[in-house]
Simulated scan of single mutants.
Amino acid sequence: MDKPDKTTVQIACIQMQPVVGELKQNRTRSLSLIRKAAEQGAQLVVLPELANSGYMFASRQEAFALAEPLPDGETAQALIKQAEELGIWLVAGIAEHAGDRLYNSALVAGPRGYIGSYRKLHLWGEENQFFEPGDSGLPVFHTDWGVLGVAICYDGWFPEVYRLLALQGADVIAVPTNWVFMPGQTPESPTVHHSLCLAGAHSNGLVIASAARIGIERGMHFVGRSLIAGSEGFALSAAGSSENEEIIMAEVDIAAMRRKRQFNAFNHIQRDRRTDLYNIYV
C-alpha cells in the first residue's frame, strides 16, 4: 500500500458505562456518544470492551444470550451504518457468538462499511469461563490515514501484541478495554495500565488509543482513566477521572510520527532490533 507523505487523524476514545444485559440501552448510548465525537471532529472513534453487552456475566448462558454474530448482529449493523453515515472509522468492543463459540471481540467499521473484526487473544479472570481465546491472530486494517491495529484490555500486558502489530505497519492501535483496579491502586494513584500503554507506544513508535469503561457492575469496580498514548511515550489525552463519562481526543500527524521513529542519525526504534539474537530465547 502506498503510504501518504502527510496525513493526520483525529482520534476519540469514549469512556462510558455499559450496563450488563441492557442491549438496547447500551446501543443507544453508544450511538449517541459516537455521533457527539464525530461532531467534535473525530475520524477514528474507539468504544470500550464489550460495550454492547456489559461485562460481568453470571453464566456462559447469559453471555451467549447477550452476544451476537459479526457483522450481522443488530448492534453491529447499527454501528456499521453509523460509521458509513458519519464517514468515520470505528472500533467497538462487542460480545460475539460464532456458532456455539463465544469471543470477546472488536468490530472494525469505516466510511465504506464493515472492515473486519478482532478476537481477544488473552482472556482475563472469569472471562475464561465464558469465552474462547481468540483464533484470528493480530490483523491490521488499512485506512485512508494509515494502518490500524486492535488489541483488547489484557492483551496489552504482553509486549508481543504491540510489537507484532507494529511489524505489520500499524500506526495506531485501538484498545477497547475494561480496566479494573490492580492491587494497591486507588482512583487517584498512578495506574499500571497507563504505564503499559505509554511504554508500548514509545517502544514501537506508534499511538495506543485506549477506551475504558466506568462504573460498578455486579460488585466489580472499573477504573476508567481512558488514555491516548503518543509515540514518544507521553499522554496525548487522558480522562480526568474514574467516575465520569468522557470523550477524550487527540490529533495525530501520522507522517510526522513515522519520521520520529528515527531517533537520531544512528538509531531507529524498529530497525535496531537484534533479531539475530531474540529467537534464542523464544
Rank of each mutant, 00 (worst) to 15 (best):
L50N: 05
P159C: 04
Q17N: 13
A37M: 04
S237W: 03
L148P: 00
Y278P: 03
L79W: 07
V91L: 02
Y281V: 15
R258P: 02
W124M: 12
E74I: 12
P71R: 01
P4N: 10
S30M: 09
V9H: 01
F57G: 07
M249H: 07
R261Y: 03
R60E: 13
I269M: 08
G230A: 05
K24G: 05
I115K: 04
H268V: 08
L102R: 09
F64S: 14
A151P: 00
T191Y: 00
Q40H: 10
A250N: 05
P183E: 14
A211P: 01
R213V: 07
A238I: 15
P190L: 05
H142I: 15
V192Y: 03
R225F: 04
E74H: 08
G110L: 03
S53N: 10
D155R: 11
A98M: 13
R27E: 15
R112P: 01
R27N: 12
Q77N: 03
I14S: 02
T75H: 00
I216G: 04
K260Y: 01
I269D: 07
A51S: 15
S32R: 12
S105I: 02
L102Y: 01
M16W: 08
Q185S: 09
W89I: 08
T75L: 01
T186G: 08
I173Y: 00
A201G: 02
W89S: 11
L165K: 06
I152N: 00
I228L: 05
I14L: 06
E126N: 05
R101I: 08
S242F: 04
